[in-house]
């Protein structure tokens, strides 16, 4: 058992866990950050996708020891009320069905748009192909990514 200092959604947090504990369980069970979802535990579904230093990461296969001192942003850290461009696009297009995968889909999209503000279909596919949606919202996700790109550029 060790003590790790984390930066989660702009706040300093401390967890007491073995260093190889997956970040996902530290977030969910130690810190009560429940937005990142457990879907597979092996980095194969993307439901927990969050940002580590601004890049998409899979907290279910990321050890707590590896993120000490780094900036972790979960879905809760995007905005207070859902007014981030990606969230607004998701609301406009009514993307979610069960919604369980959507925090991960949204965070993968945030990471994509931060490095490619105008992604084409191939870039969207590459960024999101490891985020599984079991309800089948993919066509709305694709439309929402494009919409979010426009909103982020300040277009209507």
């Amino acid at each position: 058992m060790s003590r790790y200092r984390l930066h989660v959604n702009g706040e300093r947090r401390v967890v007491d866990v073995p260093g190889d504990t997956p970040l996902l369980w530290a977030l969910r069970e130690q810190l009560g950050v429940l937005g990142p979802k457990y879907g597979c535990g092996v980095g194969a579904c993307g439901a927990c996708t969050s940002l580590v230093d601004g890049r998409a990461a899979r907290p279910c296969v990321t050890a707590v020891a590896d993120v000490a001192g780094r900036q972790v942003t979960t879905i809760e850290g995007l905005s207070a009320d859902g007014d981030h461009p990606v969230q607004r696009a998701w609301l406009e297009l009514d993307v979610a069905q069960c919604g369980y995968c959507q925090p991960g889909q949204i965070m993968s999209t945030v990471a994509l748009l931060s490095r490619d503000p105008d992604p084409d279909d191939a870039a969207i596919d590459a960024a999101l192909r490891d985020n599984v949606c079991r309800c089948g919202t993919y066509s709305r996700i694709r439309a929402a990514v494009r919409r979010a790109a426009r909103l982020a550029r300040g277009e209507r």
Binding site: L34, K37, E76, G82, W90, L91, A96, P103
Partner: peptide, 28 residues
């Protein structure tokens, strides 16, 4: 043209599923 009533909870991570339910003192 409205979306789902839970949509904002979903996109902000506030939606609570079965897996998010943990009564005080609960074990796993």
């Amino acid at each position: 043209r409205a979306g789902r009533v839970d949509a904002r909870d979903v996109v902000t991570g506030r939606a609570r599923y079965g897996i998010d339910t943990r009564p005080r003192g609960a074990l796993v």
